[in-house]
Design a protein around this nucleic acid. Structure first.
Lengths: 345, 345
DNA sequence: TGTTAGCACTCCTAGCATCAGAGTGCTAAC
DNA sequence: GTTAGCACTCTGATGCTAGGAGTGCTAACA
């Protein structure tokens, strides 16, 4: 046996410990293990192996006379090479398929609903990020007159995201004025990538307002704000209650959990750059508040390239063998959904 | 001393007990009380009075050798006639004024933000209800062409609420078609109270679509859905974390609290019909899950009549003397804000 | 008659010892 | 290398005790 590679028997024992612990939540003793592994070994032999596994850092012992629980390193090995990815049952795939029959008008709503679905499937808390505004273009800018001094500003992006805001002017607004402005905006802004439209871009339009400058200039500022919101990256959480409801999880207080969930941007950053389904266990997460938890995430694709990611947050002690394939399948279906709905816009 | 009326001294003692208990959270004993009331009575006398207050149901005793805590009936009396409504300090009114400088485009967003502000001011969880769609009219219906087969549907109500949805058609959409439809909708729907527009109203329009029936009919359904959402009563919560963070409150589990907070409609129903600032203590709330908590709510006005209500949920043991005037002032400022922003639309 | 001091009593809480059970680590035999 | 046996350790539950807080009652006092 080389240093780097664990003997087959140790692996089987570690695997059995992880699975028993995940199932019961109790430290696993040598006796049950002897019977459960079915290797025909006595508990004493198992004890010897377990002792070494502790030495090697794969297991931990809450106290002398307790069973063993997997260490972070133990979970890591389990996830990387021991667990058999359990195949999803027919019911499970159907469940996911059903929950992902989302018919929302825009991308964000769809993703938010998908996040909630994921939380429901897994019974954990989900995080999802929208695409980092890559290639999102402004598709339509419209001004609709509402009163003599108010108009409705509507923006639509190539991903179906809609922003609308009622604008109240100090000045009278005439139909001609709005028509003129609508045309101007349409010509100058539509088709541009959202992130390329800055306040300077808008500022530059002031010169072309001519006699309407006074009435319409403030509107440019309003539009700038809306566009800034558009390109701001959004993060959705779902099923927060699932974690909060069992705060014993990872011995974190509800307060701490709430704080952790409030750091949405930090959570999003964690799952944004992943490739394929990834599992981050405990301190592998850069975010300090997540050190007692694990995160499992998968990217989804849009128009052939990675767009964003969805993931779940749960206790370190979770059923990775089930969560990982679930998430893989989930992201696959989600990609399909998104491409079907928004790919042809 | 009549049955119905408590002797002055008893009132003062009860009042002192409520205030001490609210402040410390500990059962109040006769000794501290003797010193704190400043009535020059010995602890033994206080004990006699307290004994009677227990008999009368205004106080409770966790166990024989503990101090007393107010019963629900005790809190009731305190709120109704004992507490001096503490005047808000200058800082407090300024704080509320500042937090209520909300500049949102529509009514609902404003109310939601106000709810969050209230939660922040009080450190509790807020509930707010939008007006029961009384007198809200549809103000504008617009269709904006987006692609050859898609159009953006935009609805605006007299309260500034905006709904927009991207509609994808099976058929080609022409500008003439949309212009025709826009005009039709404008003529037939605008100015109508939202709740009067039913699916039948829309159904009736089918006959007037003529050659466009095929392409536009599904849109009517879509509009119906959006309008239904408009008139659906909305409820906002704010600061849920404030309660969850201290779940010891009222010895409720986080699970129960979460369940309670999920019953938004039920919560809204509780505060909807109130007149003036109202306090509901414990079981005075019809909602079973609230029996260990209290609710303090106040209505706000819009255009001269009661529109909706805002309130807070907190532990029975809360500082009513401060919360009540806070909420009174809050609803006053909120009414002003709403009337200024939306009253002239 | 209302008020007060005094004191026995109740109950809670914290600390400590005890005990059974679970599981280990070690040793000696196979 | 594997195993049986056994002493040892640690946890968690239980019961006991002492200290403290606060009451309820009684008897004396104004």
């Amino acid at each position: 046996m080389r240093n780097t590679e664990l003997a087959e028997r140790k692996k089987r024992i570690l695997c059995a410990i992880v699975e028993a612990y995940v199932a019961t939540g109790e430290p696993v003793g040598s006796k049950v293990l002897a019977s459960v592994t079915g290797m025909g070994l006595s508990s004493a032999t198992i004890r010897n192996e377990m002792f070494e596994l502790v030495e090697l850092g794969y297991l931990e012992q809450p106290h002398t006379s307790a069973g063993r629980i997997p260490s972070q390193k133990g979970y890591r090995l389990y996830v990387d090479s021991l667990m058999g990815r359990r195949r999803l049952s027919r019911e499970e795939t159907i469940r996911i398929d059903e929950l992902l029959q989302i018919n929302a008008g825009d991308f964000e709503t769809t993703l938010e609903a998908a996040g909630k679905a994921l939380a429901e499937v897994t019974g954990l808390t989900s995080v999802s990020t929208v695409p980092q505004d890559k290639g999102v273009m402004l598709r339509k800018v419209e001004l609709i007159q509402c009163g003599r001094k108010s108009a409705l500003l509507v923006l639509l992006t190539s991903m179906g995201v809609i922003k609308s805001k009622l604008y109240r002017s100090q000045e009278m607004l005439t139909p001609e004025m709005l028509a003129f402005f609508s045309r101007l905006l349409d010509e100058r802004l539509c088709g541009l990538p959202v992130e390329s439209i800055t306040s300077e871009t808008l500022e530059a339009l002031t010169g072309e307002l001519f006699e309407y400058t006074c009435a319409l200039r403030p509107l440019l500022g309003e539009i700038g704000e809306q566009i800034a919101e558009l390109s701001g990256s959004e993060v959705f959480l779902g099923g927060e209650a699932n974690l909060l409801g069992r705060a014993e999880v990872a011995s974190m207080s509800v307060r701490d959990l709430l704080h952790m969930l409030e750091r949405r941007e930090a959570l999003a950053a964690l799952i944004r750059g992943i490739h394929g389904v990834e599992v981050r266990i405990g301190t592998e997460n850069d975010l300090q508040q997540l050190h007692a938890l694990s995160i499992v995430a998968a990217p989804y694709e849009f128009q052939g390239r990675q767009a964003g990611a969805v993931g779940i947050i749960g206790p370190t002690r979770m059923d990775y063998a089930k969560i990982v394939p679930s998430l893989a399948y989930f992201s696959e279906v989600l990609s399909r959904l998104i491409n079907n709905t928004f790919g042809t816009l």
